[in-house]
Simulated scan of single mutants.
Amino acid sequence: MAKEIEIDDNKIVELYMNACLLNKDNLSSVYAFCNYYEFEESKFYEYFTSFEALEMHIFKLFFTQTQSVLMNSKQYEAYDPKHKLLSFYYTFFELLTANRSFVVLKLKESKNKLEIIKKMQSLKEAFKLYVKELGIEKVDFKNDKINKLQDSSMSNLAWLQLISILKFWIDDTSTKFEKTDVFIEKSVKAGFDVMNIAPVKSVFDLAKFLWKEKGAMS
Protein backbone atom coordinates (compact mmCIF):
# COMPACT_ATOMS: atom_id res chain seq x y z
CA MET A 1 0.00 0.00 0.00
CA ALA A 2 1.23 3.47 -0.87
CA LYS A 3 2.57 5.53 1.96
CA GLU A 4 0.18 8.39 2.76
CA ILE A 5 1.66 11.87 2.92
CA GLU A 6 0.27 15.32 3.61
CA ILE A 7 -1.24 16.50 0.35
CA ASP A 8 -3.70 19.04 -1.03
CA ASP A 9 -4.76 20.36 -4.43
CA ASN A 10 -1.73 22.65 -4.73
CA LYS A 11 0.64 19.77 -3.95
CA ILE A 12 -1.03 17.61 -6.58
CA VAL A 13 -0.63 20.42 -9.11
CA GLU A 14 3.08 20.69 -8.26
CA LEU A 15 3.67 16.94 -8.51
CA TYR A 16 1.70 16.61 -11.75
CA MET A 17 3.54 19.44 -13.48
CA ASN A 18 6.85 17.89 -12.44
CA ALA A 19 5.74 14.47 -13.62
CA CYS A 20 4.70 15.82 -17.02
CA LEU A 21 8.15 17.30 -17.54
CA LEU A 22 10.34 14.71 -15.78
CA ASN A 23 8.53 11.45 -15.12
CA LYS A 24 6.03 10.87 -17.94
CA ASP A 25 6.27 7.10 -17.48
CA ASN A 26 4.36 7.56 -14.22
CA LEU A 27 1.33 9.16 -15.92
CA SER A 28 -0.14 6.01 -17.47
CA SER A 29 -2.91 6.21 -14.85
CA VAL A 30 -3.89 8.11 -11.73
CA TYR A 31 -2.89 5.04 -9.74
CA ALA A 32 0.62 5.01 -11.25
CA PHE A 33 1.00 8.72 -10.55
CA CYS A 34 -0.09 8.42 -6.93
CA ASN A 35 1.93 5.27 -6.35
CA TYR A 36 5.10 6.94 -7.64
CA TYR A 37 4.70 9.90 -5.28
CA GLU A 38 3.60 7.61 -2.44
CA PHE A 39 0.14 8.85 -1.55
CA GLU A 40 -3.24 7.16 -1.67
CA GLU A 41 -5.16 7.34 -4.96
CA SER A 42 -8.27 8.35 -3.02
CA LYS A 43 -6.48 11.58 -2.05
CA PHE A 44 -6.26 12.55 -5.71
CA TYR A 45 -9.99 12.05 -6.17
CA GLU A 46 -10.75 14.31 -3.22
CA TYR A 47 -9.73 17.18 -5.49
CA PHE A 48 -9.84 16.03 -9.12
CA THR A 49 -11.79 13.45 -11.09
CA SER A 50 -9.09 12.88 -13.74
CA PHE A 51 -5.88 14.24 -15.25
CA GLU A 52 -8.04 16.19 -17.70
CA ALA A 53 -9.87 17.93 -14.85
CA LEU A 54 -6.52 18.63 -13.19
CA GLU A 55 -5.18 20.28 -16.35
CA MET A 56 -8.30 22.45 -16.62
CA HIS A 57 -7.69 23.50 -13.03
CA ILE A 58 -4.05 24.34 -13.73
CA PHE A 59 -4.87 26.63 -16.66
CA LYS A 60 -7.51 28.41 -14.60
CA LEU A 61 -5.00 28.63 -11.75
CA PHE A 62 -2.82 30.87 -13.92
CA PHE A 63 -5.83 33.20 -14.12
CA THR A 64 -6.60 33.18 -10.40
CA GLN A 65 -2.96 33.76 -9.52
CA THR A 66 -2.89 36.69 -11.94
CA GLN A 67 -5.99 38.17 -10.34
CA SER A 68 -4.47 37.74 -6.89
CA VAL A 69 -1.36 39.68 -7.91
CA LEU A 70 -3.44 42.47 -9.45
CA MET A 71 -5.82 42.74 -6.51
CA ASN A 72 -2.85 43.33 -4.21
CA SER A 73 -1.77 46.32 -6.30
CA LYS A 74 -3.13 49.73 -5.30
CA GLN A 75 -2.09 51.10 -8.68
CA TYR A 76 -4.20 48.55 -10.52
CA GLU A 77 -7.40 49.73 -8.84
CA ALA A 78 -6.82 53.25 -10.16
CA TYR A 79 -6.35 52.13 -13.76
CA ASP A 80 -8.96 52.58 -16.47
CA PRO A 81 -10.27 49.40 -18.20
CA LYS A 82 -7.66 49.56 -20.96
CA HIS A 83 -4.71 49.67 -18.56
CA LYS A 84 -6.30 47.06 -16.31
CA LEU A 85 -6.45 44.68 -19.25
CA LEU A 86 -2.86 45.51 -20.17
CA SER A 87 -1.77 44.79 -16.60
CA PHE A 88 -3.67 41.52 -16.68
CA TYR A 89 -1.95 40.38 -19.87
CA TYR A 90 1.53 41.36 -18.71
CA THR A 91 1.05 39.58 -15.36
CA PHE A 92 -0.66 36.55 -16.91
CA PHE A 93 2.09 35.97 -19.46
CA GLU A 94 4.75 36.51 -16.83
CA LEU A 95 3.22 33.59 -14.91
CA LEU A 96 2.98 31.53 -18.08
CA THR A 97 6.63 32.25 -18.83
CA ALA A 98 7.58 30.99 -15.37
CA ASN A 99 5.83 27.73 -16.35
CA ARG A 100 6.55 27.85 -20.07
CA SER A 101 7.82 24.28 -20.47
CA PHE A 102 4.60 22.87 -19.03
CA VAL A 103 2.26 25.22 -20.91
CA VAL A 104 3.92 24.66 -24.28
CA LEU A 105 4.05 20.90 -23.71
CA LYS A 106 0.35 20.67 -22.87
CA LEU A 107 -0.82 22.87 -25.72
CA LYS A 108 1.42 21.31 -28.36
CA GLU A 109 0.69 17.72 -27.34
CA SER A 110 -3.04 18.24 -27.93
CA LYS A 111 -3.99 16.45 -31.13
CA ASN A 112 -6.74 18.87 -32.14
CA LYS A 113 -8.32 22.20 -31.26
CA LEU A 114 -11.12 20.52 -29.30
CA GLU A 115 -8.60 19.15 -26.80
CA ILE A 116 -7.09 22.61 -26.35
CA ILE A 117 -10.54 24.15 -25.94
CA LYS A 118 -11.39 21.60 -23.26
CA LYS A 119 -8.19 22.25 -21.33
CA MET A 120 -8.83 25.98 -21.38
CA GLN A 121 -12.59 25.95 -20.77
CA SER A 122 -12.45 27.01 -17.11
CA LEU A 123 -9.88 29.68 -17.94
CA LYS A 124 -12.12 30.93 -20.75
CA GLU A 125 -15.17 31.24 -18.50
CA ALA A 126 -13.23 33.07 -15.78
CA PHE A 127 -11.53 35.42 -18.24
CA LYS A 128 -14.76 36.34 -20.05
CA LEU A 129 -16.39 37.16 -16.71
CA TYR A 130 -13.36 39.28 -15.82
CA VAL A 131 -13.71 41.26 -19.06
CA LYS A 132 -17.43 41.83 -18.45
CA GLU A 133 -16.62 43.25 -15.02
CA LEU A 134 -13.86 45.60 -16.26
CA GLY A 135 -16.34 48.40 -16.77
CA ILE A 136 -15.53 48.99 -20.44
CA GLU A 137 -17.76 51.78 -21.68
CA LYS A 138 -20.52 50.58 -23.98
CA VAL A 139 -23.50 52.00 -25.81
CA ASP A 140 -26.74 51.65 -23.84
CA PHE A 141 -29.26 50.52 -26.45
CA LYS A 142 -32.10 50.66 -23.92
CA ASN A 143 -32.78 47.02 -24.67
CA ASP A 144 -31.67 44.27 -22.29
CA LYS A 145 -31.30 41.62 -25.01
CA ILE A 146 -29.17 43.86 -27.23
CA ASN A 147 -27.06 45.02 -24.28
CA LYS A 148 -26.43 41.42 -23.23
CA LEU A 149 -25.49 40.53 -26.79
CA GLN A 150 -23.05 43.45 -26.80
CA ASP A 151 -21.49 42.24 -23.52
CA SER A 152 -21.16 38.71 -24.88
CA SER A 153 -19.61 39.90 -28.15
CA MET A 154 -17.08 42.05 -26.29
CA SER A 155 -15.98 39.24 -23.96
CA ASN A 156 -15.75 36.78 -26.89
CA LEU A 157 -13.55 39.20 -28.83
CA ALA A 158 -11.33 39.64 -25.77
CA TRP A 159 -10.99 35.85 -25.47
CA LEU A 160 -9.94 35.60 -29.12
CA GLN A 161 -7.42 38.34 -28.42
CA LEU A 162 -5.98 36.36 -25.50
CA ILE A 163 -5.72 33.25 -27.67
CA SER A 164 -3.91 35.19 -30.42
CA ILE A 165 -1.42 36.55 -27.87
CA LEU A 166 -0.93 33.04 -26.47
CA LYS A 167 -0.15 31.67 -29.92
CA PHE A 168 2.29 34.54 -30.55
CA TRP A 169 3.99 33.89 -27.19
CA ILE A 170 4.41 30.17 -27.94
CA ASP A 171 6.20 30.99 -31.20
CA ASP A 172 8.14 33.98 -29.82
CA THR A 173 11.92 33.51 -29.90
CA SER A 174 12.88 37.04 -28.87
CA THR A 175 14.97 37.73 -25.76
CA LYS A 176 12.79 37.76 -22.65
CA PHE A 177 9.81 37.46 -25.00
CA GLU A 178 10.00 41.18 -25.63
CA LYS A 179 8.09 40.85 -28.89
CA THR A 180 5.16 39.38 -26.98
CA ASP A 181 5.06 42.48 -24.77
CA VAL A 182 4.95 44.65 -27.89
CA PHE A 183 2.23 42.46 -29.37
CA ILE A 184 0.19 42.76 -26.17
CA GLU A 185 0.43 46.54 -26.21
CA LYS A 186 -0.51 46.84 -29.88
CA SER A 187 -3.32 44.28 -29.58
CA VAL A 188 -4.95 46.04 -26.64
CA LYS A 189 -4.59 49.46 -28.27
CA ALA A 190 -6.12 48.18 -31.50
CA GLY A 191 -8.90 46.43 -29.59
CA PHE A 192 -9.91 49.54 -27.69
CA ASP A 193 -9.65 51.65 -30.84
CA VAL A 194 -12.13 49.29 -32.49
CA MET A 195 -14.40 49.47 -29.44
CA ASN A 196 -14.21 53.26 -29.33
CA ILE A 197 -17.86 54.11 -28.77
CA ALA A 198 -17.65 57.87 -29.31
CA PRO A 199 -18.50 57.64 -33.05
CA VAL A 200 -21.12 54.97 -32.33
CA LYS A 201 -22.70 57.18 -29.67
CA SER A 202 -22.90 60.08 -32.10
CA VAL A 203 -24.68 57.96 -34.71
CA PHE A 204 -26.94 56.43 -32.06
CA ASP A 205 -27.87 59.86 -30.67
CA LEU A 206 -28.60 61.14 -34.18
CA ALA A 207 -30.81 58.13 -34.90
CA LYS A 208 -32.74 58.66 -31.66
CA PHE A 209 -33.19 62.36 -32.48
CA LEU A 210 -34.46 61.65 -35.98
CA TRP A 211 -36.78 58.96 -34.69
CA LYS A 212 -38.29 61.33 -32.12
CA GLU A 213 -38.62 64.12 -34.68
CA LYS A 214 -40.28 61.81 -37.15
CA GLY A 215 -42.75 60.78 -34.48
CA ALA A 216 -43.43 64.39 -33.53
CA MET A 217 -44.09 65.40 -37.15
CA SER A 218 -46.34 62.47 -37.98
Score class of each variant (00 low, 15 high):
residue 134 L to P: 13
residue 98 A to I: 06
residue 169 W to G: 04
residue 143 N to I: 06
residue 135 G to T: 07
residue 108 K to Q: 12
residue 193 D to Y: 08
residue 162 L to Y: 02
residue 191 G to Y: 10
residue 211 W to A: 10
residue 113 K to H: 09
residue 148 K to G: 09
residue 93 F to I: 06
residue 176 K to M: 08
residue 111 K to N: 04
residue 127 F to N: 08
residue 148 K to C: 07
residue 178 E to L: 10
residue 159 W to T: 02
residue 139 V to G: 00
residue 89 Y to W: 05
residue 111 K to Q: 05
residue 188 V to M: 07
residue 162 L to F: 03
residue 105 L to H: 02
residue 119 K to V: 04
residue 184 I to E: 01
residue 110 S to G: 06
residue 104 V to D: 10
residue 126 A to W: 00
residue 118 K to I: 05
residue 84 K to V: 01
residue 91 T to N: 09
residue 177 F to Y: 13
residue 203 V to E: 11
residue 132 K to S: 10
residue 153 S to C: 03
residue 143 N to S: 06
residue 131 V to Q: 00
residue 171 D to T: 12
residue 147 N to M: 08
residue 178 E to T: 11
residue 111 K to A: 05
residue 152 S to V: 10
residue 179 K to A: 05
residue 209 F to Q: 13
residue 157 L to I: 11
residue 116 I to T: 12
residue 196 N to E: 07
residue 211 W to N: 14
residue 97 T to C: 05
residue 199 P to N: 10
residue 201 K to L: 15
residue 105 L to C: 03
residue 152 S to G: 03
residue 206 L to E: 09
residue 105 L to Q: 13
residue 140 D to Q: 04
residue 112 N to M: 07
residue 156 N to S: 13
residue 86 L to Y: 05
residue 166 L to N: 07
residue 87 S to C: 08
residue 128 K to G: 03
residue 106 K to H: 00
residue 133 E to M: 08
residue 184 I to Y: 00
residue 81 P to M: 02
residue 206 L to N: 04
residue 189 K to D: 15
residue 185 E to Q: 12
residue 170 I to W: 00
residue 182 V to T: 11
residue 85 L to K: 05
residue 207 A to M: 11
residue 117 I to T: 11
residue 193 D to I: 09
residue 115 E to K: 06
residue 140 D to V: 07
residue 189 K to C: 04
residue 212 K to E: 12
residue 156 N to L: 14
residue 91 T to C: 12
residue 94 E to T: 13
residue 110 S to H: 01
residue 178 E to G: 06
residue 209 F to E: 13
residue 110 S to P: 01
residue 97 T to A: 12
residue 127 F to P: 10
residue 138 K to T: 15
residue 106 K to I: 10
residue 133 E to G: 01
residue 83 H to Q: 12
residue 146 I to V: 15
residue 105 L to W: 00
residue 200 V to H: 02
residue 164 S to E: 10
residue 115 E to V: 14
residue 172 D to E: 02
residue 115 E to W: 05
residue 190 A to R: 10
residue 125 E to Y: 01
residue 123 L to D: 02
residue 190 A to G: 15
residue 153 S to K: 11
residue 90 Y to I: 15
residue 177 F to T: 04
residue 195 M to K: 02
residue 211 W to R: 07
residue 101 S to Y: 04
residue 182 V to N: 05
residue 111 K to D: 02
residue 181 D to E: 07
residue 173 T to S: 12
residue 145 K to P: 01
residue 133 E to F: 08
residue 128 K to T: 10
residue 153 S to A: 14
residue 173 T to N: 14
residue 155 S to I: 06
residue 99 N to S: 12
residue 134 L to V: 09
residue 123 L to R: 13
residue 118 K to S: 14
residue 158 A to S: 15
residue 118 K to D: 14
residue 121 Q to W: 03
residue 129 L to H: 08
residue 134 L to K: 08
residue 195 M to D: 00
residue 126 A to E: 08
residue 100 R to A: 13
residue 182 V to M: 03
residue 82 K to E: 12
residue 162 L to A: 12
residue 138 K to F: 00
